[in-house]
Design a binder for these strands. Structure first.
Lengths: 192, 192
DNA sequence: CCGTGTTGAGACAAAGATGTCTCACATGGT
DNA sequence: ACCATGTGAGACATCTTTGTCTCAACACGG
């Protein structure tokens, strides 16, 4: 029975193709199927054997992004005190997926009317819940809504990923820059 | 000589078309020339009479964005103390252009290699100088680089514009949300 | 009323991307 | 050596967008 073997190899290849596509589309969101194929080191025909079309590819990338996000949320242990440390863990864990997130974040601006994957709603809720918990504990200010803080996190992840990929900021500072700006802002404060 | 008259009318029309295009492309960055024309209430032929092609339109939008940005920078009086108030003024003044900025910001991710308009470099410098001034005055923390704070401002403007256009946050909170997050962050602080 | 000049509608070809197909080739197991 | 399966290269039709063109309709000043 070679089906199992082939199935396994296909899965590996599929994952590799998916990650190549993510890396490319992060930099050039309008890349053609031909460019995606070349970036993955395969032909356009083989790319079409893995993903029926561009839509299917983007859908698969969205599923990958959601999966990586939820895995990062799990690893970040958002329920443990204090909330600001949970935010720092979250940014650290989600960093590897920031580029993909940036692509999907802007891509989603196009889906205007069409309903978007419910996975995002679940992720939004979990992140917003973290901010809400921090507010309830008196740790976070209450004039910035959890929804906005969640949105701002996405925006900062996206601009951070772009800034790093274009060399405007150092990659090693990514986590610190985003987490500390989101938590403490630009203004210097007396207490640590 | 009707040339003067027609020239004047053309200019008005051109500006109107430009702003319609900005409003549309802010929401749907892949809109076709046909959609842009319809949004402006003119035919595709007339759109082509104003702008040679899509590239020319985007170039014109970029010039408009740069002009509005610089005008906002001027109105914000970035040199006046204290720096945090200058940041608040900046966000308030730049808000009307946030949608256009978001479009151009993501659009520029595609211009990878090609050199981008030097107008952006000038704007980047002016904003970074504001943050640098705040740091020199001991007002802003020094572990967040001016370049990153500038980038973060763009990211927050973009995510703010999208969040408002999709109803995830209230439009009237736009300025406060962005400025206060950028300045003070999410963590509650004792001193005002 | 008559030109001048602009507009809108549509036809048209060119270019680019997509999806499908065929065929030759390589690889790996039997 | 043989066969099966996946792959790459390329041909092909189709679709969308673009850019250019023509022509009739319209407005407006003389």
């Amino acid at each position: 029975m070679s089906h199992m073997v082939y199935g396994c190899l296909m899965a590996v290849d599929r994952d590799h193709v998916l990650r190549s596509a993510a890396a490319l589309l992060t930099r050039k969101s309008t890349a053609t199927m031909d460019e995606v194929a070349k970036a993955a080191g395969i032909s356009r025909a083989t790319l079409h054997r893995h993903f029926a079309g561009r839509d299917a590819l983007v859908l698969a990338l969205e599923a990958l992004g959601i999966a990586e996000c939820e895995a990062a949320l799990d690893r970040a242990r958002l329920d443990e005190d204090p909330a600001r440390d949970a935010v720092r863990r979250l940014v650290r864990e989600i960093e590897p997926a920031a580029g993909l997130l940036a692509f999907l974040y802007t891509e989603n601006q196009l889906f205007e009317g069409e309903g978007q994957n419910e996975g995002w709603a679940r992720i939004d809720d979990r992140i917003a819940a973290l901010f809400r918990r921090g507010q309830a504990a008196g740790e976070f200010r209450i004039d910035l809504t959890p929804a906005w803080l969640t949105e701002a996190l996405y925006g900062l992840l996206a601009s951070g990923a772009w800034a790093v990929s274009e060399g405007r900021v150092a990659g090693k500072d990514f986590t610190h820059m985003i987490a500390e700006l989101l938590l403490g802002g630009a203004v210097r404060r007396e207490e640590s």
